[in-house]
């Protein structure tokens, strides 16, 4: 089974640790949500996988092949970056032509069709595009490449709701076409929660969790009610955070749900992915 394997990768920027002995596997044939707060280490790890920065120690393997400085993985992986790495003076159509020359599996027709769907003017230079359309241009390239592993770093930056929806549906369409892996690093957690299968949660340069969305959501729940009652229920449980509003208190708990005491006014609810992420990363900081 193919995979991107990140083995014990460490990276420091001067005295600041960006990644601390990170090990994670992205298997072929899944859509991953790669979630983390700003500065958590997402982009650093993505850049190491894409051979843009070097790890201080550890290694990245793509289908068992070392990814660092190795052209053998060129046609296996593509990384759509948040930062603009394209030549700003080239027209969109010229960028497509060059991508076609650089990659064996770039579908020019698909790129042109997607450009039409997004109303992306292919005769405009990259620098003349708005921020949103620059993101769309990068998405079109990534979605027109049939490489096994595609990483999207903040793919919907500057996109309006319609364009974001279109991206998610196109992504699922592309996913259904073959055995491929999409890794989406994003802050729009709620939006991607329905399309991702597995979540990799990173914080402070360490992997906090790697689980399927289902498992992760089942691993926690929230209890709300009067503060005293909530505190009583939470005693001895793994509480990852609280929210309070007047006399109402909500506790976010990791672990198996216990039945509520008889006659209790407490309410148990499932946590959504965003809330779980917020509370887990808040706790990590504390």
């Amino acid at each position: 089974m193919g995979a991107i394997q990140v083995n014990d990768v460490t990276k420091r920027y001067k005295d600041v640790p960006a990644l601390d002995h990170v090990s994670v596997t992205f298997e072929l044939g899944k859509i991953y949500g790669f979630l983390g707060r700003n500065g958590a280490g997402k982009s650093t790890l993505i850049n190491i996988i894409a051979n843009r920065v070097f790890a201080d120690s550890g290694e990245v393997l793509i289908d068992g092949i070392p990814a660092s400085e190795n052209m053998a993985v060129h046609d296996k992986i593509f990384c759509m970056s948040e930062t603009d790495l394209y030549d700003r003076d080239l027209k969109v159509i010229e960028q497509f032509k060059w991508t076609k020359r650089f990659y064996t599996d770039f579908d020019m027709n698909r790129a042109l069709t997607l450009s039409e769907k997004y109303r992306l003017d292919v005769n405009k230079r990259f620098k003349a595009l708005s921020k949103g359309y620059q993101s769309i241009f990068k998405l079109v390239i990534a979605l027109s490449l049939s490489v096994p592993y595609v990483i999207f770093d903040e793919p919907v930056l500057g996109l309006d709701a319609n364009h974001r929806e279109l991206f998610y549906s196109l992504l699922l369409e592309a996913f259904e076409e073959g055995d491929r892996t999409f890794i989406i690093a994003t802050h729009m957690i709620e939006e991607v929660s329905n399309i991702i299968e597995e979540v990799v949660l990173i914080d402070g340069g360490r992997i906090l969790a790697q689980e399927s969305v289902e498992e992760l959501l089942e691993s926690g729940y929230s209890v709300s009610g009067a503060a005293e009652e909530v505190d009583g229920y939470c005693a001895g449980k793994n509480v990852i955070g609280y929210d309070e509003l007047g006399g109402l208190k909500i506790a976010y708990i990791m672990g198996k749900k216990n039945a509520l005491p008889k006659g209790s006014d407490l309410q148990i609810s499932a946590m959504d992915l965003q809330k779980l992420f917020v509370k887990m990363t808040e706790r990590s900081i504390k």
Binding site: A50, N51, R52, E69, N70, M71, V73, H74, I77, F78, C79, S81, L85, Y86, D87, W98, T99, F102, Y103
Partner: peptide, 16 residues
């Protein structure tokens, strides 16, 4: 400044 970034975006190694 320009080509290095573009080449990295397109998956080229530093040797290439």
């Amino acid at each position: 400044k320009e080509d290095f970034k573009a080449f990295l975006q397109n998956g080229f190694t530093r040797g290439y």
